[in-house]
């Protein structure tokens, strides 16, 4: 049992940056180029660990601590999330609320760190990040409520480990709506195209990149790593909703889970390659549509009586 927990943590700690690498490779393929190596995110993090950190004289310890707090909060959220057939190390009735709130904590400190620099660019990024974050949180909660209602459980591990196995047959359309809504939320929360472009090189056009404009060295490494883990957690949550099928063979299930994740990363890469970034004032509409999808799903449940 302990070995399984250890394995869960190992996957949680080690695997996430690879997803970014896969997204990068997919985008390169669509652009007709070779693209950065799959392990590029690891190289970047390794390099940043060997650089000094530069701080603004305006900043306080909040700026320094924020990357660590946010990464620790995201990793702590990871201990609630089942991966493949691995039960999470900790589970309890109502842990989904903590799961969302840990992400809120991570966002809170990063936003404060941005304001700590006193730069107007980062203030702008902080304002946008906080705005979109609070709008995506409501959809997140509604989606989780739907999943809880379908699986009759308030614990992530029970919802994702078998709780939804019969739901696809009974209320498939609901789950489709939830998946679409979740996917939009994933794009917003992880600042992917079409909400934000992690690869633009202008300070003004970004949300998440501009918020960490002043971080350097190991702090930036933590930020990048935390972002990767967040994407990984969202992706594995979505994958667990989409594919509830299990053969109950430990190795095959795990391998299949990783395969799903990789396919999912490729999917994000395809979205990024085929879409342009939205104008900033259109982003709320996207968030709103995610919310509407979720509301529709909820209505369908009430009408069908899936509860």
């Amino acid at each position: 049992m302990h070995i399984l927990l250890l394995l869960h943590l190992t996957i949680l700690f080690v695997f996430p940056p690879l997803l970014l690498g896969i997204i990068g490779k997919t985008k390169a393929f669509f652009a007709g180029r070779i693209g950065p190596p799959l392990l590029q995110p690891y190289f970047d993090i390794f390099k940043l660990m060997h650089k000094e950190s530069v701080y603004s004289v305006t900043t306080n310890w909040i700026f320094m601590a924020a990357p660590m707090v946010s990464t620790a909060a995201i990793l702590a959220a990871g201990t609630l999330m089942p991966l493949a057939d691995f039960k999470p190390p900790i589970q309890f009735w109502g842990d989904m609320v903590l799961f969302v709130y840990l992400f809120a904590l991570a966002r809170f400190v990063i936003v404060l760190a941005a304001l700590d620099t006193g730069s107007s660019l980062e203030g702008m990024g902080a304002s946008r990040e906080a705005t979109f974050g609070c709008l995506s949180e409501i959809t997140m909660f509604l989606n989780l409520t739907i999943l809880a209602l379908l699986s009759r459980s308030l614990s992530l591990s029970e919802i994702f480990l078998g709780g939804l196995s019969s739901s696809w047959l009974q209320v498939g359309p609901v789950l489709i709506l939830v998946v679409v809504s979740f996917f939009l939320i994933l794009l917003v929360e992880n600042s992917r195209v079409p909400i934000d472009d992690p690869e633009t090189h202008l300070e003004l056009t970004m949300i998440h990149e501009v918020i960490v404009l002043d971080h350097s060295g190991i702090d930036l490494a933590y930020v990048l790593y935390g972002k990767a883990v967040k994407l990984f957690l969202f992706a594995s949550m979505l994958v667990s909703v989409i594919i509830t099928f299990r053969v109950h063979d430990f190795l095959i299930d795990t391998a299949f889970f990783f395969f799903e994740l990789i396919v999912f990363a490729v999917l994000i890469g395809i979205v990024e390659s085929t879409m342009a970034r939205l104008r900033l004032n259109k982003v709320p509409y996207l968030l709103f549509s995610a919310f509407i999808f979720s509301i529709f799903g909820f209505t369908v449940i009430l009408v069908r009586g899936g509860h």
Binding site: S53, Y55, V69, A72, D219
Partner: peptide, 28 residues
């Protein structure tokens, strides 16, 4: 658990800061 991770991250950071000292400058 989050606290433990935080302290590990802080220790790693402290160790690295020994080799790559922190520098102060103005906000970018």
């Amino acid at each position: 658990f989050g606290g433990v991770i935080f302290s590990v991250l802080a220790l790693v950071r402290d160790f690295l800061v020994l080799h790559y000292p922190v520098r102060l400058t103005e906000t970018w």
